[in-house]
Amino acid sequence: MTEKQRKTVRLVYFVLVTAALLVAAVCLMSACVSIYRTGDHPFSREAVAAAFAPIAVPVFVCLGLVAVGFILHPLLPAAADAAPDRDEVTLGRLLARDLGEVCNPELASAIRREYRARQLHRWLSVGLLTAGAAVFLWYALNVDHFHRTEINASMIAAMWVLLPCMGIPFAYGVFAAYHRRRSIRREIALLRQIPGAPAPAAAAPNKDKWLAVARYAVLVLAVGMVLYGWLADGWMDVLTKAINICTECIGLG
């Protein structure tokens, strides 16, 4: 089989298996929701089994396709992955050269512009994230927003606050990340116009000594905490929680 044919078979299989997985997942979800929406509470084992029975066919078809994939895969090997993304390394090496004397003012200005644009987006991202976190913490640390009995409602309300507080910085962060990638490529193109061999990467200073100190300090602290907790019967509550089924924790009730 030629590479082109292999590629076609792989593509067809991928489309089929992806569609089957999505259909199976939607079936499982809709069965679960339909039990909750239309079922008579309290539910019985038989009622739940009856609700899930109709989705057996799509689920088994999906499992069959998955099994086929495991057989097909060694027979239709894919081409090797693309070369690693080395943009940031290249940029670092190009910048490590002494550019002061060889760089013309226009080029230097263009390089600085790229750098400043990246910095601006970075600080705006950090600023938005900080503001979002501050707003959310202001909300979350107010005990009145979390009712003692209406726990689920309180959590849903908190999620509605969390969503914009984290969603907006995230959306901007995605934009900034892609801008950074494009900007680095533009800067590399500019830097390559300057003659001179890239400098070798400089080895980072050795920080192992301080890491070792931190490691043993935390180790001693951890052992001390465990010993104190154990001797003060802190293990009893862990045992109590662990030998009783927390129905809420496992999603039962």
Partner: peptide
């Protein structure tokens, strides 16, 4: 689960669970 439970359980449990997490970490 133990960490979340330890906030309500008391100081000694918090030390025990926190210490175990630190130790593993």
């Amino acid at each position: 689960g133990s960490l979340q439970g330890s906030f309500q359980a008391g100081k000694s449990t918090l030390f025990y669970v926190g210490g175990v997490l630190l130790l593993y970490g």
